[in-house]
Design a protein around this nucleic acid. Structure first.
Length: 276
DNA sequence: CGATTTCCCTGGCCGC
DNA sequence: TGCGGCCAGGGAAATC
């Protein structure tokens, strides 16, 4: 379940390996969700950045004198997606490959995704019309645009539960189920709340930033499938305070954490610390 | 037209 | 041991 910290961890690991590499050839598993991978043939990588949970790999045609990013290879990892650069001929460690790109230097970029919730798209740079969530993506959590007032207006202006809003990617980019539960617990906000005071909005904004920054520092959260681009595990699973702890004691007040379903997502919260 | 529901996927786990 | 049932859940399509 790669969320912003997991995707950012992978981005940082891939960046030095991919920058300047030429994509000589490509292969995909035969479904339309991944077939765009083939369109990256004959390009070189000019940049690799992240927006929310999306990785955007800038590509330039290799025959250009001055490489300028003109297309973007977009990869979303879905639930179980993994990306890694491996040496050609190295022992095979990936059992659910959905796309591979042969790189200069006898290396291969592998996209592996057991459950196929991931997605690959190749677009003209900046043209995200075929990806509605990316098109409408909210501010990056660490950007100045992600203000308490922005958060408060979005939440108070809708009847949807605040957790649903956080997962929707339009209010803020990159938050998924794990970090949403953590941030709401840290801020003392009920996941079904749909109202924030100014003061509470500031606390929640800060806690969203705190928990995502902590997740990045820890190299992500590995619960089931997540692995970084070197095949390693994250460390944040050892620091979770709320997510997945239903039935256990609240670290703050000792009450028993409860599990409910919000927006078809399993949700853990403290009935005492997080009042409506 | 915005909000809500359904569907896509497979591995791991549980109970019988 | 085998197997049915269930759960994990982000995003896009379908439907309300």
């Amino acid at each position: 379940m790669p969320e912003l910290p997991e995707v950012e961890t992978i981005r940082r690991q891939l960046e030095p390996k991919l920058l300047g590499a030429t994509i000589l050839d490509a292969w995909t598993f035969g479904t339309p969700k991944f077939s765009d991978a083939l369109l990256a043939r004959g390009t070189s990588v000019t940049q690799i950045r992240r927006l929310g949970k999306y990785l955007l790999i800038g590509l330039a045609a290799v025959d250009q004198a001055e490489p300028t990013t003109e297309r973007e290879l977009i990869v979303h990892l879905g639930m179980t997606g993994r990306l890694a650069v491996v040496e050609e001929g190295a022992p095979e460690d990936y059992f659910h490959k959905r796309a591979t790109w042969n790189l200069s230097g006898d290396r291969i970029l592998v996209f592996d995704d057991v459950r196929r919730f991931g997605r690959i798209a190749l677009v003209d740079a900046g043209d995200y019309g075929s990806l509605p969530t990316l098109s409408a993506l909210g501010p990056e959590p660490f950007d100045d645009a992600f203000t308490p007032e922005h958060l408060r207006r979005a939440v108070n202006g809708s009847r949807r539960a605040i957790k649903t809003q956080l997962l929707g990617q339009r209010v803020v980019a990159g938050v998924g189920n794990i970090y949403a539960d953590e941030a709401l617990w840290l801020a003392g906000v009920h996941p079904r709340s749909h109202h924030l005071t100014r003061a509470r909005a500031e606390i929640l904004r800060d806690e969203i930033r705190n928990v995502l920054a902590s997740g990045i520092d820890d190299g992500g959260t590995t619960l089931r499938n997540y692995r970084d681009a070197d095949g390693g595990s994250g460390n944040h699973q050892n620091k979770l305070l709320c997510y997945g702890r239903a039935g256990l004691d609240c670290r703050r007040c000792g009450s028993i954490l409860r599990r409910i379903v919000v927006d078809a997502r399993s949700t853990t919260y403290c009935p005492v610390c997080q009042r409506r």
